[in-house]
């Protein structure tokens, strides 16, 4: 009997949904928009985070060693640095490798080759490339390197050049995250309110029916069930439309992100998190739909 009632409520919900096409359209549109805005904010936030991570990966400190430091000592310093918490990795580049790289970069420019030959010995210094685990740590890493322990091995550090870049990036990242969070919350609140109101309107237009249902002996739950199914339909349909819209937006902003993100990164991200995103939107959408229906119908069930 329970199953029979549930099935009846389901078909009733379906009929309500398809009967009131305009209202269903309005509700689905609003809910879709809400889900889209919220998930787009989250999606862009995550993408932004990823881009920042990428840029951060490209930041490093080059530590130039004095010419009298042997390779053995250099490697010892490397290991020492790697053992500190703030450092993610250290790469050792010997002066020979540096020269090779320099020559290949200048791609056989005869005047450069000549100049190097003129000097007779390798004019370049060996250096360590230090990657921090977070861009905030460069400051303290630089301080460590300037301490007594390393001072006599090190010729110079090019941190100064990167310093401004790093600080600016840090500022931008944290403010983008804060603003994104605030905008996201505002949108969530607004969209929940609008969706709730639209569903309330649709319940309001049927208040006479609820009264009749109650008077012929329908229990509150029985009157309510079709509307809850309606809420589920609203949520499900809106979620699917929203995820398609995000796909379209991700695809259309990809060309605008040239230089910031690599080609296909955004779409790759989309497909990587597709199921998680769909599930999240679906749960959120159905939740708003059901809760709105549940609350909106309550006032008509007090007979």
């Amino acid at each position: 009997m329970k199953l029979l009632k549930l099935f009846r409520a389901f078909t009733e919900g379906m009929r309500n949904f398809s009967r009131n096409k305009w209202l269903a359209f309005a509700t689905v549109s609003v809910l879709t928009l809400a889900l889209y805005v919220v998930s787009a904010t989250v999606f862009l936030g995550l993408t932004g985070r990823m881009i920042v991570d990428k840029i951060e990966d490209n930041i490093d400190i080059n530590v130039y060693l004095n010419p009298d430091v042997s390779e053995e000592n250099a490697l010892e310093t490397k290991v020492l640095l790697e053992s500190t918490m703030e450092v993610e990795s250290v790469t050792y580049v010997s002066n020979d490798t540096a020269l090779e790289k320099f020559l290949s970069d200048s791609s056989g420019d005869p005047s450069i080759l000549e100049a190097v030959e003129e000097i007779g010995e390798n004019p370049l210094l060996s250096y360590l490339i230090v990657h921090a685990s977070d861009s905030r740590y460069y400051e303290s890493i630089a301080q460590t390197l300037e301490s007594e322990r390393f001072k006599n091995q090190i010729s110079h550090i090019n941190y100064g050049k990167n310093k401004e870049k790093i600080e600016r990036l840090n500022r931008i990242t944290s403010s983008v995250e804060r603003v994104g969070l605030i905008i996201g919350i505002i949108f969530v609140v607004i969209s929940v309110l609008i969706t709730f109101n639209t569903i309330r309107l649709s319940m309001y237009s049927r208040q006479k029916e609820f009264e009749v249902m109650r008077l012929v002996g329908a229990s509150n739950m029985y009157v309510r069930m079709p509307s809850i199914f309606e809420g589920i339909f609203y949520g499900t349909i809106s979620s699917f439309i929203a995820i398609v819209l995000i796909f379209v937006s991700a695809q259309s902003i990809t060309p605008l992100m040239k230089g910031i993100a690599t080609e296909g990164m955004l779409m790759g991200f989309y497909w990587q998190y597709f199921w998680l995103m769909l599930l999240g939107i679906l749960v959120f959408g159905v939740f708003i739909g059901v809760v709105s229906s549940f609350i909106a119908i309550r006032r008509y069930l007090k007979i």
Partner: peptide, 22 residues
């Protein structure tokens, strides 16, 4: 107080459906 979107048959049957009749 009939349900406008239900037929005569459905209006009457609704009273039985709510009582869980098969």
């Amino acid at each position: 107080k009939l349900l406008p979107h239900k037929t005569v048959f459905e209006n009457v049957s609704y009273a039985l459906e709510v009582a869980g009749k098969s």
